[in-house]
């Protein structure tokens, strides 16, 4: 297809030009999504560990709900966060709608269930292997949870990467709460949506190629790190 060919040409030309606007958009994308991943991991990993190791009423329901929330539509998340942060909403006084902070919040909400659910699974698998040994050594559930978080770190990296992939790729939530404001909240995905609506499909696709390449590079780096570490630690 001609326009596919054109898209890769556009992507190469964009990267080669070192266009300042493009760099700004790429950096904002990374900053928003990485911050969201960081926050979601700090909250989601302990939640995953707690559910994996804990025994409490409603645990199974919680697991089902968490698994279902992995499929949250970004637009719904965007709308919910918008209504929260809107001036007319409960958190309107913060005045952070249409800022990168709002985008971080929306993406955090979006990927928190992914990180929590995937880490819950990984930690629970490890827990069934480690449980007797750790209890025998005198570890309580809390300290077992921390031990498992560290011991399953390579699997958890995959959970975190899944969250990052979702955050970097979604457009619905950041479009609504960020507003796609030029130079302020325009990220890769909203820029792609904008160029599409302007009918500049090659440019949109070119931006898409760059986005995918970035996610690919990050994943490859993480994978290699993980592999090297796994060879060392078993």
């Amino acid at each position: 297809m001609n326009s596919l060919h054109e898209a890769f040409g556009q992507a190469a030309a964009l990267v080669a030009s070192g266009d300042a606007t493009l760099i700004e958009i790429v950096l904002l994308s990374l900053r928003v999504s990485l911050t969201a991943v960081l926050v979601a991991a700090l909250i989601g990993l302990p939640i995953g560990a707690a559910i994996a190791v804990g025994r409490f009423p409603g645990r199974r329901t919680l697991i089902v709900v968490l698994n279902a929330l992995m499929g949250l539509p970004p637009v719904v998340v965007g709308l919910l966060v918008y209504l929260l942060l809107s001036r007319a909403g409960p958190l309107g006084a913060l005045g952070i709608l249409f800022t990168p902070t709002a985008m971080v919040i929306a993406q955090t909400v979006l990927i928190l269930p992914i990180i929590a659910a995937l880490s819950r699974q990984a930690i629970e698998d490890a827990w069934s292997e480690y449980q007797e040994q750790l209890r025998s050594l005198g570890a309580g559930r809390l300290s077992a949870a921390f031990t498992l978080l560290w011991d399953t770190r390579f699997s958890l990296l995959t959970a975190v990467l899944a969250g990052f992939g979702r955050a970097a790729a979604e457009v619905g939530a950041v479009m609504i709460v960020g507003g796609n404001i030029d130079g302020v909240t325009r990220v890769m995905t909203t820029a792609i949506a904008l160029e599409t609506s302007k009918g500049d499909l090659p440019l949109a696709l070119g931006l898409g190629v760059i986005l995918i390449s970035l996610v690919l590079i990050l994943n490859a780096a993480a994978y290699l790190t993980k592999e090297a570490a796994q060879r060392r630690y078993g």
Binding site: E129, Y130, E132, Q133, L134, S136, L137, G138, A139, S143, T147, W150, D151, R153, F154, Y233, G234
Partner: peptide, 28 residues
């Protein structure tokens, strides 16, 4: 704390051999 157990299949944590021992001591 006055008793310990060794299982048929040992479960070792992803850390150095000596750190596994130190971990058990830390728990006590």
């Amino acid at each position: 704390r006055r008793q310990a157990m060794v299982f048929q299949r040992p479960v070792m944590l992803r850390r150095s051999a000596i750190a596994n021992l130190e971990y058990a001591l830390a728990l006590q």
